[in-house]
Write a protein that binds this DNA or RNA. Structure first.
Lengths: 102, 102
DNA sequence: CCAATTGTTTGATTGTCGTCAAACAATAGA
DNA sequence: TCTATTGTTTGACGACAATCAAACAATTGG
């Protein structure tokens, strides 16, 4: 399998980040990660096939919003809070707050 | 001409707002409005035809990010700062800050 | 080694987006 | 009234996005 691509902190692009967050499914993924820290792809229970979810994770990953750690047969995803906050201060917090209380 | 559509404050939708802001041209429009207050459509000097710009203004307007006031032959656009801040506290500020200094 | 599990990739389909030229609408001024 | 001026709308085109099924890859357990 091709290795997972994670852009560096300096490469984070605001339009790309906003675009990635503009999809309801991806926004929901981000909200859950914000609450739970680290989650495997299969544990989200969202109404989409695994192929579709894999696509959404890829969009979030390539925008630099999440990072994916491989452990055995699982992929554990987590928010890149520090990188996002360093590059776009207050943005993630505002988006999470705006997306409603958990 | 059909009257200009402006959604109410309560109807502002986060994904739609994030999507509208995810285009570089639209982001630039928002940045200029944030600095200059109120601007006619033709005064932006952006590299696009008037048809394309009209489209971008429409997307911003229908997402509730700007409001357009008709005066004579001009359309004056301004940011809906108060509505955005009421609905999504801190979001506009974070986006503007993240989009770089003017 | 074999089968089950987890997730990615590919190929196809369907729909939307950004862009432009051209036609249109509305207003202001001569 | 005629003519600029300003902006919107329409129609078209190419590019891209969301979705799924099916095939594939990688690991774990028996």
């Amino acid at each position: 399998m091709r290795s997972l691509h994670h852009p560096g902190r300096e490469q984070l692009d605001l339009p790309a980040v906003l675009y990635a967050l503009s999809d309801p499914t991806r926004l929901e993924i981000v909200r859950r990660l914000a609450g739970d820290g680290e989650l495997a792809c299969g544990t989200f229970g969202l109404p989409a096939t695994k192929a579709t979810l894999s696509h959404h994770f890829k969009v979030l990953r390539e925008a630099g919003i999440i990072q994916t750690r491989v452990e055995g047969v699982h992929r554990y995803n987590s928010l890149r809070k520090q990188d996002l906050d360093a590059r776009f201060p207050g943005l993630l917090k505002a988006v999470l707050k705006a997306s409603g209380p958990r």
